[in-house]
């Protein structure tokens, strides 16, 4: 089978499977989040009531948007404190068979920010830093709760469209409980079992030593007492030559974390190699399941949206925009990677695909996945807020690396994170109808709600927050010693590494371009701050928009109302997304992957 056909077939299979599963899941989520009686609510009612009683929650009361927002912020503040404390105290806590010492304060801060914001940026190496309790009770719990937070915000924005002259938008504690209890937990349990079936490990054993057949000699980087690499006077890593015939195999409760890592679009790997590690993602089938899990809930939420607003075509229009952008950019990634490095070809190396080799650019890719599954995974993980990786994005060709970077910069809405994808897409829909309204001279409306100055001001806060923190953060890193010290590659590629790090943090993705030493005080602190602002300021604006819309009356549909369920609206939406993404980021992209691409072409 030819490589392009393999890519097209794999992509079509994954998308067909996800769309097939997304429909019933989307309808189910609409029922659950609105409390319409179904089998899950009946079975889960006693547990749900117990949770409310134990936490002192009045499930029948609803609040306005500002009280809802402050509840959400307090909840996530508490989550950040718990994750921070677990890391700093882990040497005294149980389930730490490797006796890992406390994680450094700056790394603990960064990781706490990363996991409450659904970013899951990892400056640390999981298997050599985190005890099992920290992984399970800190990181995996936040994988559920951060995804539940995102889903709650998306549901509230939908309520904003469907409620009329309402002062309340919902109950945050009920929304988070229901999305965790009825959606994320059962799906994660199912996927964890399926992954165990493929060979993903699930235990709390201490690490195992295996004796290798051959002796291995390698340069081992020296680290200080906090696990950070030691550098010499010139800033190069200090290494020592080590010969060994023993390989340590890390263990742990991986499958349970892997499942919610993908389903919750979190992305924080149990191991440093993330989904490239054979204990996280051992087979082609587990890889298929993980890509599908990444895309499932964000796509299903478009059905939820259609069901809740009473017109499923509205959801289909959003889904079409998501999928068109996703497919187009995934194809660019695949073509770039399969095309390979022109310098390799000019050196008389056969880089073409044959029956015995994949051809193209296999640097940083697992042979068990190949180029098609790696390009698809890279596009899925950055088109959502996941950030899990099954290949090294840093090793992609310049235009291959451009794709994950640009997918994040578009706002991660192809199809986006759990909840975040839908509400980001809805903000772009509001912008789209506003632009269309300006062109035709009518008051913009979306789903029967007039879009006025307040909504546009809030949408502007939403749209501008992330590019502001990403570009200012990148500029500061480029200008300061602390920022430049972490870069391992010179020139345009080094700039891409910094831009990628801040783009990933600001958009709450969490994948890394690697090639950058991010476990430093500069990057731990700056990226931590960027992650929080990039997550919660747009959420505040979204909830304010929801409150504003909910308080409005619904205007009747007339002949002058622009339809928002057809191909024309989908094209308008895609145009708005691409236009804003390009306007925000083209100058920065031109200095990174674009110039690197032309340098490579020029050298060729």
């Amino acid at each position: 089978m030819s490589a392009p056909l393999q890519f097209a077939l794999l992509g079509a299979l994954v998308l067909a499977f996800v769309i097939l599963c997304a429909r019933p899941l989307g309808i189910y989520m609409a029922d659950v989040m609105e409390g319409k009686p179904n089998f899950a609510l009946r079975w889960g009612a006693p547990l749900e009531r117990w949770i409310y009683r134990a936490c002192g929650i009045d499930a029948r009361s609803e609040t306005g948007w500002s009280t809802y927002t402050i509840g959400l912020l307090v909840f996530n503040l508490a989550g950040a404190m718990v994750v921070y404390a677990l890391q700093r105290l882990q040497q005294w806590l149980p389930l730490n068979p490797q006796h890992f010492s406390a994680v450094s304060a700056d790394s603990s801060f960064n990781t706490a920010m990363a996991f409450v914001t659904n970013t899951d940026w990892q400056g640390y190496s999981g298997e050599s830093t985190m005890g099992y309790l920290t992984q399970a009770a800190g990181l995996a719990v936040q994988n559920f709760l951060s995804a539940a937070t995102g889903m709650a915000v998306a549901i509230v924005l939908i309520r904003g469209f469907i409620r009329r002259s309402a002062a309340t938008i919902g109950n945050f504690w009920v929304d988070v409980t229901r999305s965790s209890l009825y959606v994320l937990l059962p799906l994660a349990a199912l996927l964890a079992v399926a992954l165990v079936g493929q060979g993903v490990i699930q235990n709390v054993h201490s690490y195992r030593d295996a004796t290798t057949i051959e002796k291995l000699t390698f340069d081992n980087p020296k680290t200080d007492s906090e696990g950070k690499p030691l550098l010499d006077d010139k800033g190069n890593p200090v290494t020592e030559s080590v010969t060994t015939q023993t390989q340590t195999l890390p263990m742990g409760p991986v499958a349970s974390q892997e499942a919610i890592k993908e389903l919750g679009t979190n992305g924080g790997g149990f191991f440093n190699a993330n989904s490239a590690h054979p204990f996280e993602n051992p087979t082609a089938l587990s890889n298929f399941m993980e890509i599908a899990a990444i895309l499932l809930i964000p796509l299903a939420l478009t059905y939820t949206f259609g069901v809740m607003v009473g017109d499923r075509r509205q959801g289909y229009a959003l889904m079409a925009a998501m999928l068109i952008l996703f497919a187009a950019l995934a194809a660019v990634a695949f073509v770039s990677e399969q095309g390979g490095n022109p310098l390799t070809a000019s050196a008389s190396v056969d880089a073409g695909a044959t029956a015995t080799q994949s051809g193209g650019n296999m640097e940083g890719k697992e042979t068990r996945f190949g180029i098609a599954a790696s390009a698809l995974f890279a596009s899925a993980t950055t088109g959502t807020s996941t950030g899990a990786v099954n290949s090294a994005h840093d090793s992609m060709m310049p235009m291959g690396g451009f794709v994950p970077l640009f997918l994040m910069q578009l706002g991660e809405l192809t199809p986006g994170g759990v909840g975040t994808g839908l509400y980001t897409m809805l903000i772009f829909a509001i912008l789209g109808v506003f632009i269309a309204g300006l062109m035709i001279g009518r008051t913009p409306e979306y789903l029967g709600k007039k879009i006025q100055a307040r909504e546009m001001k809030l949408a502007s806060i939403f749209i501008l927050t992330t590019p502001t923190v990403v570009l200012i953060g990148t500029a500061i890193a480029v200008m300061t010693e602390g920022g430049r010290a972490g870069v391992l590659n010179p020139g345009a590629h080094g700039f891409s590494e910094i831009l990628y790090a801040f783009t990933s943090a600001g958009n709450n993705n969490g994948s890394a371009f690697a090639g950058i030493s991010a476990n430093t005080v500069f990057y731990n602190v700056s990226l931590g701050i960027v992650m929080w602002i990039g997550r919660f300021w747009p959420i505040v604006a979204t909830l304010a928009i929801a409150g504003s819309l909910a308080s409005k009356k619904r205007v009747p549909v007339t002949e002058g109302t622009m339809p928002t369920h057809g191909a024309l609206f989908t094209c308008l939406l895609i145009g708005t997304i691409v236009l804003i993404g390009v306007l925000n980021y083209v100058p920065a992209l031109a200095l990174g992957p674009v110039v690197e691409h032309f340098m490579l072409s020029g050298a060729h």
Binding site: S66, A80, R88, A105, Q452, L458, I529
Partner: peptide, 30 residues
Amino acid sequence: MDIIYLLVILGLFMASVGLTLAIGRLGDGS
């Protein structure tokens, strides 16, 4: 050291609450 990072977390939280309150005071602009 811990107190500094906990204060940074608290500061980020307070800034977000501040944004919420500021938006609450934002008129409809019409």
